[in-house]
Simulated scan of single mutants.
Amino acid sequence: MDYALAVEDTPETISGGTGVLLVHPSTGETDRIDTDFLSTDTDHFLVVSTRTTAREVEQKLEHYDVDREKATILDALSIERGYSRRSGEGVHYVSSPDDIEGIVETVAEFLEGHSGKLRVSVDSVTEMAYYADEERAREAVEGLLDLLDDHDAVGLFHLAEEVHDESVVEEYRELFDGVISLDVDGEVRGDF
């Protein structure tokens, strides 16, 4: 199954099972790329948010006019910040961004529980590495890429470039079929 990819300087379509790495400055404006990715040619999507709360994700989706009915959100931050939360109505929670097993399990459940064209956004791998460590974050990414492949889905994984050693960024680049680089001026470059 092919998926449209509505991001400048990238192929028009990518095949199911493709993971795309979004490398950006830590202050980079990634919302437009993320929401374009999620809203195009999609039946259902999951936002794995280790950087913002579910409420902030909902505000972003609303601001960019993305269909909330298609969305499931995994919030890895609210409980960590001390808010008591129960899953329901398209929002799920794990205890913190270092709950790697919980994150991978929730993504698996989403992919198994939905059909059609499925997209996953992981915002962000950098936060997972900050809370867990580089090795566990990388294992999570590898597990998520395997799940995308198994379910013919596609994913966009955010990585703040300057936070990681150059060698770590290169290792991540090698894991992915496509890399979108966003520079500080907002210029986008695709490498597929």
Rank of each mutant, 00 (worst) to 15 (best):
5 L>V: 07
5 L>F: 07
6 A>Y: 01
6 A>V: 07
8 E>C: 06
9 D>E: 13
9 D>S: 12
11 P>L: 03
14 I>T: 01
16 G>M: 00
17 G>Q: 12
18 T>I: 05
18 T>M: 07
18 T>A: 00
20 V>C: 04
20 V>Q: 00
24 H>L: 14
25 P>D: 12
27 T>E: 14
27 T>R: 13
28 G>A: 11
28 G>E: 08
31 D>F: 12
31 D>H: 11
33 I>D: 03
34 D>R: 09
37 F>R: 09
37 F>N: 08
37 F>Q: 10
39 S>G: 15
40 T>W: 01
40 T>Q: 11
43 D>H: 03
44 H>T: 09
46 L>M: 14
47 V>I: 15
51 R>G: 07
52 T>V: 15
52 T>K: 10
56 E>N: 06
60 K>T: 15
62 E>F: 10
64 Y>Q: 08
65 D>I: 07
68 R>I: 10
69 E>M: 07
69 E>A: 15
70 K>Y: 06
72 T>F: 11
73 I>W: 05
73 I>Q: 06
74 L>G: 03
77 L>M: 14
80 E>Q: 14
83 Y>G: 03
84 S>A: 12
86 R>A: 13
92 H>S: 02
94 V>F: 01
95 S>T: 09
98 D>C: 05
100 I>Q: 01
101 E>S: 11
101 E>T: 14
102 G>K: 05
104 V>S: 08
105 E>H: 10
106 T>V: 06
107 V>Q: 00
108 A>V: 02
111 L>N: 03
111 L>Q: 03
112 E>R: 15
113 G>V: 12
113 G>N: 11
114 H>V: 07
115 S>A: 13
115 S>N: 15
116 G>R: 11
116 G>P: 05
117 K>F: 09
122 V>Y: 09
123 D>L: 07
127 E>Q: 15
128 M>Y: 07
128 M>W: 05
129 A>M: 14
130 Y>N: 08
131 Y>T: 13
132 A>Y: 02
133 D>N: 15
133 D>W: 06
134 E>R: 13
137 A>K: 02
138 R>K: 14
140 A>P: 04
145 L>C: 05
146 D>V: 09
146 D>S: 13
148 L>R: 00
148 L>I: 05
149 D>M: 11
149 D>S: 15
151 H>R: 11
156 L>E: 08
156 L>R: 05
158 H>M: 08
159 L>C: 11
161 E>T: 09
161 E>Y: 11
165 D>H: 12
165 D>T: 12
166 E>K: 14
169 V>E: 04
174 E>Q: 11
175 L>K: 10
176 F>G: 03
177 D>P: 00
177 D>Y: 09
178 G>F: 04
180 I>G: 02
181 S>D: 13
181 S>L: 12
183 D>A: 14
183 D>Q: 06
185 D>P: 03
188 V>Y: 02
189 R>W: 10
191 D>Q: 14
192 F>L: 03
